[in-house]
Design a protein around this nucleic acid. Structure first.
Lengths: 203, 203
DNA sequence: GTCTATATGGCGATAGAC
DNA sequence: GTCTATCGCCATATAGAC
């Protein structure tokens, strides 16, 4: 009895988040959200004015849940190796808890890249500075690498793809065994950093 | 004058493909397709009966453009190293020519994995057999590897992610320079196989 | 703060003229 | 084969009662 005092305003946000993530912006109607929240459609407009405003509020909340880690980890003074382990560990955990986030963000990214770029900037992240810092670390460790941007794209791809393609891979290679796939993802906390460190050390 | 004799039926398919890829299924209306094709909305129904049937026809065409390569390459008798190079080369080329395909397929995959699984089966591909073959090759080369499924997911992620996230990465790390990003993708034809082979050889 | 009722427009789909 | 006209429905959004 100590909780349950969640406001309608917040309840809408929780429900809408789930519906938008499952069906995307265009695939979601205000009616679907209202039904799932057990309230009247008009209330959505009362609190959030329009579908787009509601969507943006949710998207920015979702984005803010994981994007700041990127800056914190890569602008820190850890060694590059520790950054890699920290990054993979953190993002695997976030996405295991929020499995729909990767495809949700990729979709918006492909349709509205300027919007995402703006949010990243607002989060105080400067990707070019980050890349510069990575390149510098590679030089200091006397590692030749073609371009630190490859390093960065590799890291992101290895972390994000297993979530974006999860429904199909889990089905085809793991017999729809959710636990087995979760375990597979945990293994990747070591697998991915090792892969990347091997490449760096051998380069 | 020798061409230009493309039928309305095919013209619709070409236009609809572009519109669906840009906006997704829910984000596309029959009116948008008709306008872009310069024809009446009713004609779409005359040729393809319903929006869903039109979409499926297109999706299956797109899917069929790249999925068979997967089976051909990995079920062949090349060495594993050659398979990797062949795979990356092929998929980079396909996606450079069809940059919207990765996110288009990922979206459908996340909403309808059974459908994709069915199409893969119809294409004569058995992913488990493929994984088995990869595992066998790794054993023969006396390579310990945790699980060949990691190898497979790594390969796909490294190839697909740079396309799925292209609009944002090109903007933030390449100053919106399309040519520079195309060049970056070409570099990955060597970068990705080297990364994976290093990991295998060191494992 | 929450509801009913309604305005307005777009949607997918079909009938039928030409 | 291509068009106009129209059906029935659902979309977002607002006005106003309680």
């Amino acid at each position: 009895m100590t909780e349950k005092k969640i406001s309608t305003e917040e309840h809408i946000l929780d429900v809408a988040r789930e519906v938008f993530m499952l069906n995307g912006y265009s695939g979601t109607s205000m009616q679907m959200i209202a039904d799932k929240a057990g309230i009247n459609k008009s209330l959505l407009h009362y609190y959030y004015r329009s579908k787009e405003k509601l969507f943006r509020k949710i998207f920015e909340k979702v984005f803010g849940q994981f994007i700041p880690h990127l800056g914190v980890i890569f602008m820190s003074e850890m060694t590059l190796e520790k950054k890699i382990y920290a990054f993979v560990e953190r993002y695997m955990d976030v996405f295991v808890e929020n499995p729909l986030v990767p495809i949700f963000v990729l979709e918006e990214l492909s349709k509205n890249p300027e919007y995402l770029a703006e949010l990243i900037k607002e989060a105080g992240i400067n990707p070019k500075v980050m890349i510069g810092k990575i390149g510098q670390a590679l030089e200091e460790e006397k590692i030749y690498i073609r371009d630190p941007r490859h390093f960065f794209v590799n890291l992101l791809g290895l972390c994000i793809f297993p979530f974006a393609a999860r429904p199909l891979i889990e089905r085809m290679l793991f017999d729809n065994d959710k636990d087995a796939y979760d375990n597979f993802l945990q293994e990747r906390k070591k697998e991915v950093p090792q892969l990347i460190m091997n490449a760096i050390r051998k380069a």
